[in-house]
Computed example of a mutant assay.
Amino acid sequence: MDTFLRSVTLLRESVPDLGKYPFNIPAVRSLETLDLHPQVTLFVGENGSGKSTLVEGIAVAAGFNAEGGSRNFNFATRRSESELHKYLRLVRGTRRPKTGYFLRAESFFNVATEIENNLDAQQGHGLVSHHDMSHGEAFLALVQKRFWANGLYVLDEPEAALSPQRQLALLRLIHDLVRSSCQFVISTHSPLLMAYPNAQIYHLSEKGITEVAYEQTEHYVLTRDFLLNREAYLRRLLE
């Protein structure tokens, strides 16, 4: 099956200085070409590994507003995006998405405010007030009301506001949308979201970017070992 985005390439020869942010992040500096899964691609890694920076760069290069929203959103509460998007080349498939969205946890409040200030945006989001909900409820309502078939969706740490049960609910929503010909590119810390069947998982670290299996992710290994050996972990950690 063809996809909306086939791959992303760093145009290294065009970067003026690979020693400056964000190109000094090891995973970004080592980036050449990454193939993207036609359904779900996941970027995982420690804080500061560059996964949110890379996802933001892909989103902006794809035409989304840096703080989030659809391609029709054009606002800036505070410009903070990196220059990475200027040096990324997206290889697109033969299909074109009919819709799409960039959802990032840290700036969703700003997106919700923008929706409230625009009647057309309110109607497009199901006439719900995200500010009248908890952060987690607002996240799920956005996906339920605004994520439609044949869409490209870029998510930056969507689990930030979600309980484990709500993360599973999001996983089901993602699956329903994948079956409606959608493509997802997601950065996450959640071992629950990482478990999506057949997802392509890239691990970002000081060593660069490597493709890993779910059971090889640090998040899965640590969570499994902690739950199986909780007392030993706590004893070593707290003593």
Rank of each mutant, 00 (worst) to 15 (best):
residue 2 D to G: 00
residue 2 D to L: 01
residue 4 F to S: 00
residue 5 L to F: 09
residue 5 L to N: 04
residue 5 L to E: 08
residue 6 R to V: 08
residue 6 R to G: 04
residue 8 V to H: 00
residue 9 T to H: 12
residue 13 E to T: 14
residue 15 V to T: 06
residue 16 P to T: 07
residue 21 Y to G: 04
residue 22 P to E: 15
residue 22 P to T: 13
residue 23 F to H: 05
residue 24 N to K: 08
residue 25 I to R: 01
residue 28 V to H: 02
residue 32 E to I: 05
residue 32 E to Q: 13
residue 32 E to W: 10
residue 34 L to F: 12
residue 36 L to H: 01
residue 38 P to A: 04
residue 39 Q to K: 15
residue 39 Q to S: 15
residue 41 T to V: 08
residue 41 T to D: 13
residue 44 V to Q: 07
residue 44 V to Y: 06
residue 45 G to R: 00
residue 46 E to W: 09
residue 47 N to Q: 08
residue 48 G to K: 01
residue 54 L to D: 09
residue 54 L to P: 09
residue 57 G to P: 10
residue 58 I to Y: 07
residue 59 A to Y: 12
residue 62 A to N: 01
residue 63 G to C: 10
residue 64 F to Y: 14
residue 66 A to W: 14
residue 67 E to I: 03
residue 67 E to S: 05
residue 68 G to K: 08
residue 68 G to Q: 09
residue 70 S to R: 12
residue 73 F to Y: 14
residue 74 N to I: 01
residue 79 R to L: 10
residue 81 E to S: 05
residue 81 E to K: 11
residue 83 E to V: 08
residue 84 L to W: 05
residue 89 R to D: 08
residue 91 V to L: 12
residue 91 V to R: 12
residue 91 V to H: 12
residue 94 T to L: 14
residue 94 T to S: 14
residue 94 T to P: 06
residue 96 R to W: 05
residue 97 P to R: 06
residue 99 T to Q: 13
residue 99 T to H: 15
residue 100 G to M: 04
residue 103 L to T: 02
residue 104 R to D: 11
residue 107 S to G: 02
residue 107 S to L: 12
residue 110 N to K: 08
residue 112 A to L: 08
residue 115 I to E: 05
residue 115 I to R: 00
residue 116 E to R: 08
residue 117 N to P: 10
residue 120 D to E: 15
residue 124 G to L: 14
residue 125 H to E: 10
residue 125 H to Q: 01
residue 125 H to A: 02
residue 125 H to W: 13
residue 126 G to P: 10
residue 126 G to A: 07
residue 128 V to G: 00
residue 128 V to N: 04
residue 129 S to D: 15
residue 131 H to S: 07
residue 131 H to K: 09
residue 135 H to E: 15
residue 135 H to C: 05
residue 141 A to V: 01
residue 143 V to W: 11
residue 143 V to P: 04
residue 145 K to A: 02
residue 149 A to M: 06
residue 150 N to T: 01
residue 150 N to Y: 12
residue 152 L to N: 04
residue 154 V to N: 02
residue 156 D to N: 06
residue 159 E to T: 03
residue 164 P to N: 08
residue 164 P to Q: 06
residue 166 R to P: 00
residue 167 Q to W: 06
residue 169 A to L: 14
residue 173 L to A: 11
residue 174 I to A: 01
residue 175 H to Q: 14
residue 176 D to S: 10
residue 180 S to R: 09
residue 183 Q to Y: 05
residue 188 T to A: 03
residue 189 H to E: 11
residue 190 S to G: 05
residue 190 S to N: 04
residue 191 P to W: 11
residue 191 P to T: 09
residue 192 L to T: 10
residue 193 L to W: 10
residue 195 A to Q: 11
residue 196 Y to C: 00
residue 196 Y to S: 00
residue 197 P to V: 03
residue 203 H to L: 15
residue 208 G to C: 05
residue 209 I to T: 03
residue 210 T to N: 11
residue 210 T to H: 11
residue 212 V to E: 10
residue 213 A to E: 15
residue 215 E to P: 00
residue 216 Q to T: 02
residue 217 T to K: 04
residue 218 E to M: 13
residue 218 E to Y: 14
residue 220 Y to S: 02
residue 220 Y to K: 02
residue 222 L to K: 09
residue 223 T to Q: 13
residue 225 D to T: 08
residue 227 L to K: 07
residue 230 R to D: 00
residue 233 Y to V: 00
residue 235 R to H: 13
residue 236 R to A: 11
residue 237 L to D: 02
residue 238 L to A: 06
residue 239 E to D: 14
